[in-house]
């Protein structure tokens, strides 16, 4: 079998195809920012995770330090067990505070880690003790209305007291 120009064109075609797949993976996708090799897992129990999703980022001081790999409902404690993969380069003290935050008003939710002052660091599989649930808008509005109502009631009560004195 001898070489033909057709072979050359097919070679160019296959190279371009593989190149396109590589560009998709590295430039368009997030494969370039994956560092799946070196990471450890932490678990946090949250009373309410709001709209948190698997693959959402874990940030500390705004820097992405890991990703959420699994969210499960714990039937013993009736809360959500969130598993996250943290990059090995970042170590956190044992009294780190994990809270579910929202980027922007309508943005996606993520876990924010605020480091504490403990000497020992969290190891693979450790549980984060201090957690803060997601803000649920309905609950916040409900609480606000309740506060407002009780405030009004209190002022009315004081008004009637004044009347009574007169």
């Amino acid at each position: 079998m001898q070489r033909t120009t057709m072979d050359l064109w097919v070679g160019v075609f296959v190279m371009a195809g593989i190149g396109a797949l590589l560009i998709l993976a590295l430039k368009v996708g997030n494969l370039g920012t994956y560092s799946a090799a070196e990471s450890y897992t932490l678990i946090g129990n949250f009373e309410n995770i709001g709209g948190l999703k698997v693959r959402a980022p874990v940030k500390s001081a705004g820097v992405v330090v890991g990703r959420i790999t699994d969210i499960r409902f714990n039937t013993e404690t009736y809360d959500a067990a969130v598993t996250m993969n943290i990059d090995n380069r970042y170590q956190f003290p044992r009294d780190t505070f994990a809270s579910i935050l929202t980027s922007g008003l309508l943005g996606e939710q993520y876990i924010g880690l605020a480091a504490g002052g403990d000497e020992t660091v969290l190891k693979n599989g450790d549980k984060i003790m201090k957690t803060n649930s997601a803000m649920v808008l309905e609950e916040m509005i409900g609480r606000f209305l309740f506060d407002k109502a009780s405030e009004n009631k209190a002022s009315e009560d004081s008004d009637s007291d004044d009347d009574g004195k007169k």
Partner: peptide, 15 residues
């Protein structure tokens, strides 16, 4: 343009 794209497009899930 690029960073938001790379944030949203997952290798395993999308590509």
């Amino acid at each position: 343009f690029w960073s938001q794209m790379q944030n949203a497009v997952d290798f395993r899930y999308d590509i």
